[in-house]
Simulated assay, not measured.
Amino acid sequence: MPDIQRVPVDFSPFFWDVHLEDLDPAIHSRFIIERLLNEGDHHTLHWLFKTYSMDEIRHVIQTSRNLSRKTARYWPYYFNLKEEEMRCFGTSLIKPDNLF
């Protein structure tokens, strides 16, 4: 993994629910990657790809259940993944016919 820097202060709008100074990019990598993939902009994604390896980002994309549908639909194209390889597209615990 490349040299890990602190999360930049100007990213605070993306981490409104945590204290930015408490985020450790090495320890909280999954949370940071998920949040920036879902909510980030061009600037934050540039930092994300400089900070974490492609393999680590791909692993989060494949195993996360916290990606928005929009995010989950975009990144497989970038990483050449299939929906079957992504946990967020797995089966739901609630079946549609059991809703009512």
Rank of each mutant, 00 (worst) to 15 (best):
F11P: 00
E34A: 11
H19T: 15
S29K: 13
H59S: 15
L48P: 02
D41E: 09
L67I: 07
V18A: 15
N66C: 06
N98T: 14
Y74K: 13
L99C: 09
V60T: 14
S92T: 13
D24V: 13
W47R: 02
N98P: 02
L99P: 01
P8D: 02
C88S: 03
E83A: 12
H43N: 07
L23M: 14
P96S: 13
H28W: 06
W16V: 09
W16G: 09
I61R: 04
N80T: 10
R87N: 09
N66T: 02
M54W: 03
P8H: 01
I57Q: 01
P96Y: 07
K95V: 09
Y78P: 01
F14K: 00
T91M: 11
Y77P: 03
G90T: 03
L37S: 03
R30D: 10
L99G: 03
S68F: 09
I57K: 01
L45H: 15
E39Y: 12
E39F: 11
E83Y: 10
V18L: 13
Y78D: 06
M1D: 08
I94G: 07
H59C: 13
G90R: 05
M86W: 00
L48G: 05
F89N: 09
I27F: 10
S92P: 00
I4N: 09
Q5Y: 06
E56V: 07
D41T: 06
L67V: 07
I4W: 07
F15C: 08
W47A: 02
H19L: 15
D10H: 15
R35F: 03
W47D: 04
S68H: 05
S29P: 00
K70T: 13
I57T: 05
E56H: 12
I4E: 04
S29Q: 12
D41F: 04
